[in-house]
Amino acid sequence: MRAARSLHSTPLLRSHTTSPRVSIATARIPCLQRHAWPAQRRTFLRNQQSSGRAVENINVNCMRNESYEYYVRRRSFMLCGAIASSIAAFYTAYLLYVAVRNPKKLDSGLPDKLDPFTTDAGSKRKTVVHDADGREIVPTGNSVVPVFPRLLDLAIGAEEGQEKVNGVEYTLVGLGVRTVTFIGIQVYMVGYYIATQDIAAIQARLVKEINPIATTLVSTEKDTLRQALLHPEQGEKLWNSILREVRPRSVFRIVPVRDTDFHHLRDGFVRAITARSQGDNAQFGDEAFGVAMRDFKSLFNRGKVPKTREMLLFRDAAGRLTVTYDDGKTGMGSIGRVEDERVSRLLWLNYLAGKQVASEPARTSIVDGIMEFVERPIGTVAAMVI
Rank of each mutant, 00 (worst) to 15 (best):
residue 268 G to E: 06
residue 351 Y to L: 00
residue 162 Q to G: 07
residue 17 T to I: 10
residue 123 S to V: 06
residue 334 S to G: 09
residue 202 I to S: 10
residue 283 Q to R: 14
residue 212 P to F: 12
residue 124 K to Q: 13
residue 255 V to W: 00
residue 308 T to W: 03
residue 79 L to Y: 15
residue 314 F to Y: 15
residue 60 V to Q: 13
residue 338 V to Q: 12
residue 335 I to E: 05
residue 346 L to G: 01
residue 130 H to C: 11
residue 195 A to Q: 04
residue 37 W to M: 12
residue 79 L to R: 15
residue 20 P to N: 07
residue 21 R to P: 01
residue 341 E to W: 10
residue 201 A to V: 01
residue 223 D to W: 00
residue 374 V to E: 00
residue 194 I to R: 12
residue 67 S to K: 12
residue 276 R to L: 14
residue 295 D to F: 04
residue 287 E to N: 10
residue 6 S to V: 09
residue 205 R to W: 04
residue 92 T to W: 06
residue 85 S to E: 15
residue 20 P to F: 07
residue 29 I to R: 04
residue 128 V to P: 09
residue 378 I to T: 14
residue 151 L to F: 15
residue 19 S to Q: 09
residue 84 A to V: 02
residue 197 Q to Y: 06
residue 374 V to G: 00
residue 262 F to A: 10
residue 90 F to E: 13
residue 259 D to C: 02
residue 271 R to T: 08
residue 139 P to M: 05
residue 186 Q to H: 10
residue 357 V to Q: 04
residue 89 A to K: 06
residue 282 A to K: 11
residue 261 D to P: 02
residue 328 G to E: 04
residue 354 G to S: 07
residue 147 V to F: 14
residue 231 H to A: 03
residue 61 N to F: 09
residue 365 S to Q: 08
residue 52 G to E: 12
residue 212 P to S: 15
residue 336 G to P: 06
residue 375 E to G: 09
residue 299 L to F: 04
residue 310 E to Y: 03
residue 114 L to K: 14
residue 96 L to M: 13
residue 118 T to R: 13
residue 187 V to S: 01
residue 91 Y to R: 00
residue 269 F to R: 07
residue 160 E to P: 02
residue 376 R to S: 06
residue 332 M to D: 11
residue 30 P to S: 08
residue 223 D to C: 00
residue 250 S to Y: 05
residue 122 G to H: 14
residue 191 G to M: 08
residue 253 R to D: 05
residue 352 L to M: 11
residue 236 E to I: 07
residue 48 Q to H: 07
residue 342 R to N: 11
residue 39 A to N: 13
residue 100 V to R: 13
residue 370 I to P: 01
residue 167 G to P: 05
residue 320 R to W: 09
residue 168 V to F: 05
residue 121 A to Q: 10
residue 151 L to T: 10
residue 140 T to P: 00
residue 199 I to E: 15
residue 142 N to S: 03
residue 155 A to D: 12
residue 299 L to P: 02
residue 333 G to Y: 01
residue 367 V to F: 04
residue 333 G to D: 01
residue 384 M to K: 15
residue 91 Y to L: 01
residue 359 S to N: 09
residue 12 L to E: 15
residue 343 V to F: 08
residue 93 A to N: 08
residue 65 N to D: 08
residue 351 Y to S: 02
residue 268 G to M: 04
residue 285 G to F: 01
residue 352 L to N: 09
residue 51 S to D: 14
residue 321 L to G: 02
residue 258 R to K: 05
residue 263 H to K: 08
residue 298 S to A: 12
residue 382 A to Y: 03
residue 159 E to G: 09
residue 224 T to S: 03
residue 44 F to E: 01
residue 344 S to K: 03
residue 227 Q to K: 02
residue 172 L to C: 13
residue 318 A to P: 01
residue 378 I to F: 07
residue 357 V to N: 05
residue 350 N to E: 10
residue 169 E to G: 04
residue 279 G to L: 03
residue 176 G to H: 00
residue 212 P to I: 12
residue 258 R to N: 00
residue 135 R to S: 11
residue 239 W to G: 13
residue 79 L to K: 14
